[in-house]
Design a protein around this nucleic acid. Structure first.
Lengths: 395, 395
DNA sequence: TTCTTTCATTGACAGCGGAAAATAAGAGCC
DNA sequence: GGCTCTTATTTTCCGCTGTCAATGAAAGAA
């Protein structure tokens, strides 16, 4: 038995097999017949695809709990064996790294946060490697190999090349992050834009499961958007996509750091809200938390700032709905802490600006901590693993 | 030899074969090796896919003209035999039907326009059938069978079902147009949204050829948008997509017929421009043609209206670019007659509002007459034919 | 003529996924 | 318990696709 697990590969190279695996991963324990139906294949195909996956332990037979129909042979359930393998996901924010160790089912087993004082590539890389090593050591207790590392970074990311093209937040340009992280951690590395990583997690396990067209809108320091069209995450021709934060909703609006005026982010981003509240009240508000507190205390003028932010977000969502016709829009991000302050305005602005059947789009909120973003990064690593498509291996 | 050609089917049912056919259709005469490269297949696969298509006359060997490399066996070219089959495309506008007879290469052989006085379903259907019959009769001269009819209608269209869900322009709701037209014409019918049909034509033969992410923006009575993401035309979950005309670019802007304010269409649609010029000048401008003339005559206040329209269009395009990151945006539509009046504003507004690498998107104009939209309708019929996927046959 | 180069074709072959038949595993009934 | 009915899963072919490696074909060059 070889000791290195680095070269472990997934025993299902056909599109159909990895699609069946993904279906089972995403839709919990399934009977083979149900999996066949969902994947649009024959039952025989499922049996054949499942066999090697069972043999290698990636899938296991699940206990058949719950009511069974009175008639016929009882179905046997198949599910992914989470304990079979582990993955690490890291989300890089301006101030800290959020790392999670997940199992093959992408369930979070451990979570760690480490502060980040220096945003230079070398420093972030060193911290990431340290965090990954820490999780690798702890992973030994779980008795399963760690098969990949996913890193989620805001900005323009070229996932295929594993490179960060441009991250305004970190002030990085053309950093071959996957390659660098692979050499320092010894793991296969996948790099993806942070919102797209979160979108993958939602597509597999969250409110986007089973949908072929949906959007994830993240509200917080920045305002971002992950799009799924025809079942695929949209990456854009130049690595840019989903920049809902820089959709103009009011040409007479406040200037944005991007150089334009009236972007959603310039009205509803945390920095914008805080500075707008300062202007309106004269109170030296420090951060978003304090801003929310002031709003709840009923300080005059604060609620209006949130109302305007909600309107901007609602318009941005309507724009997405008008252009792409998604089935659902999932609102998430730290900014949801203030959701009660602008829920109504989001909904009203969306309804007013959504055109025709686009208004039938289901807009819902999901509070997701940063650990969920890191989980999304792990999900991209799992994607790379099951598609046996690791552009950047450890050597 | 059977006389009925209605049941003629395409002899390539595999995805690979129809992909190779589409590649040859779209990229002109190709060597087999070149076709293999473009389709991502082996040369052997091309040889095998091409053989039955040659046998049935859909493809032919093309004369090898032009410079050949000095060395090696000269390549033999393959191209689609346009004369092998014919298709009819019809674009329905508020005032007329535009019909074209195209060959299998989707080259327009004949074009006809008939006025439309009544927009009721029955009347439009009768006129469409009449137009189709006229073209069918003329088609006999070409000695090739007519294998399909494509109809392009503005509004929400369910292509798979062949139904018009809602067309505000025609005031139709849930009209099973494909079924109705199939029974009156005896042809397999494909129904598609008009802008998406035009987008298919651009994807195959126009400025979108070879691109996996681009957008077509149509400027005219309405402002529409066809989107191609990951190589596929976006249809949206509810049949709505690409409603750039109802993207809000100025919440303080004029009211739109959709009930909202400041939509692109409410600023840059023909009706909006005309009425805005009337307000500004007091001249009872009748239509867009007259409006353009006034602008060119330098009547005070008219150019400003166009400038504002250009700004709105540029912002709308920037919104598309920010959300989807297309490689190219193609501006077309009757409104291009006025393009010199707002080209600068479109470009400036786009550049100002495009975020990061989204600004690298190539924005270009293509004047395309309505016949080109009808050709797009024919292209959708060809699509249905080669994918052997006719939801609505003649019986 | 013979060699070289490049394009195209052929034939063997592996593997996928489907259809249909066979098998498995209950539950109910006698 | 044995039989039957029903539904889930597996097995057994079987056709088909696309690849590989080898071969053929069609030039120009030596």
């Amino acid at each position: 038995m070889r000791s290195t697990s680095r070269t472990e590969t997934f025993p299902a190279h056909t599109p159909a097999a990895s699609q069946i695996f993904t279906t089972v991963l995403s839709h919990g324990p399934l009977t083979r017949l149900e999996a066949a139906r969902r994947a649009g294949l024959s039952a025989a195909a499922v049996t054949k695809a499942v066999r090697p996956l069972l043999a290698d332990g990636y899938l296991v037979e699940a206990a058949d709990e719950g009511a069974r129909p009175a008639l016929g042979r009882p179905a046997s359930l198949v599910r992914v064996d989470g304990g079979r393998a582990l993955f690490i996901g890291v989300k890089v924010t301006g101030g800290e790294l959020i790392g999670v160790l997940t199992d093959l089912c992408c369930r979070i087993r451990l979570a760690r946060r480490v502060p980040l004082t220096d945003r230079a590539t070398r420093a972030v890389l060193a911290s990431t490697a340290e965090l990954a090593h820490e999780l690798l050591v702890e992973a030994e207790d779980f008795g399963a190999p760690v098969l990949g590392l996913g890193v989620a970074v805001s900005g323009e990311v070229d996932r295929a090349e594993g490179a960060v093209r441009y991250s305004p937040f970190l002030d990085w340009r053309d950093v071959p992050l996957a390659e660098l992280a692979a050499t320092t951690t010894g793991l296969p590395v996948t790099v993806e834009n942070d919102v797209r990583a979160l979108t993958v997690a939602e597509q597999w396990f969250g409110a986007g499961a089973g949908l072929s067209d949906f959007a994830v809108v993240t509200v917080g320091a920045g305002i971002g958007c992950g799009l799924v069209v025809n079942g695929r995450v949209v990456a854009g021709a130049h690595g840019v996509a989903g920049e809902i934060g820089h959709v103009t909703v009011d040409p007479a609006g406040p200037p944005c750091h991007c150089g334009n005026r009236g972007c959603v982010e310039a009205i509803a981003g945390e920095a914008a809200i805080v500075s707008r509240i300062r202007e309106a009240t004269g109170i030296p508000v420090a951060d978003a938390t304090e801003a929310v507190r002031l709003a709840h205390q009923g300080v005059a003028g604060v609620r209006e700032v949130y109302a305007r932010a909600g309107e901007a977000i609602g318009r941005g969502i309507a724009t997405v709905a008008n252009l792409l016709g998604p089935e659902r829009v999932i609102i998430s991000g730290e900014g949801l802490a203030a959701y009660d302050l602008f829920a109504e305005q989001i909904r009203d602005a969306f309804t007013a600006a959504a055109f025709g059947s686009a208004a039938r789009c289901d807009v819902q909120t999901r509070p997701l901590p940063f650990e969920e973003w890191a989980r999304g990064a792990a999900a991209t690593a799992i994607q790379s693993f099951i598609s046996s498509d690791h552009p950047h291996l450890s050597r």
